[in-house]
Amino acid sequence: MKRKLFKLSLKQKQNYTGYIWVAPFIIGFIFFFLAPMLQSFRFSVSELNFTTDGYELKYVGLENFKYALTVDPNFNQHFTETILGILINIPAVILFSFFIASVLNQEFKGRTLARAIFFLPVILTAGVLHELEVEDLMYLITRDRGNILLSAAMVRDFFLDMRLPRAIIDYVIIAASNIPQIIEYSAIPILIFLAGLQSVPAHLYECAKIEGATGWEMFWKITFPLVSPLFLTNVIFITVYSFTAPGNSLVGYISSLTWGRGIFGVSVAMSLMYFLAISLILLVVGFILERNVFYME
């Protein structure tokens, strides 16, 4: 063993010190991530009681899950609403942010300002603000005014005249009433797409132009394939972001159970089910996208 160590080249030795650089994360991952995660599995099948100098756990089997699914009056509703909300948002945010990024990538006056404004929601998204806006009259009034403009019936008639399939129309209407949220979620995906669009080598376009390709062809044959890996990145980002986004009704409900009613086991069980549902979505979407994404290497 000693001889083997002695024979390490300089480069190998340097590479071993890599462990020192990542050591903080390894420690943090084990103690502040992995351990709590394993604990939360244990909590989900236990009843938690505080004692004078700590807490004790009593094994109750799947009681907490049963309570969440059958006894609790609100969980099922919040759960389906949140999951459906995420599923509806993913395609809308992806298409919207890709489109906006392509527009913002063009040259026009005031581009810098427009970019700055599109990125503003990152700053304005705070949990407290959402909490207060729920009972804010002014916010509710202006939101309703916006909805009147996009009066669903009008939009539906318009699209029905165009003989589009019913499912698509319904989707557009739901997404349209979600526009403020979609814009809010799009801020970072727009930046990621923008960065991707700018990293497409310019010589490819020049070459295509000389060969006589139109803008439309260049978009589908050059831009789209080269940026396609970012669709995967962004889907993952949006899904993860929507878990914790302030205003997420399920998250708010789980927190209210934890700190309001003190039923820790149940709220951990709920988080666990939430986590499993999200992982499933990520796996399915990731799998589908991964097969259709183009990598340049």
Binding site: F32, Q39, F43, V268
Partner: peptide, 17 residues
């Protein structure tokens, strides 16, 4: 992985820790 797991899952054990 730390990015993908919702923080709600680990905050309660972390709080107790």
């Amino acid at each position: 992985f730390t990015l993908v797991v919702p923080p709600q899952m680990i905050t309660i054990p972390l709080f107790l820790n």
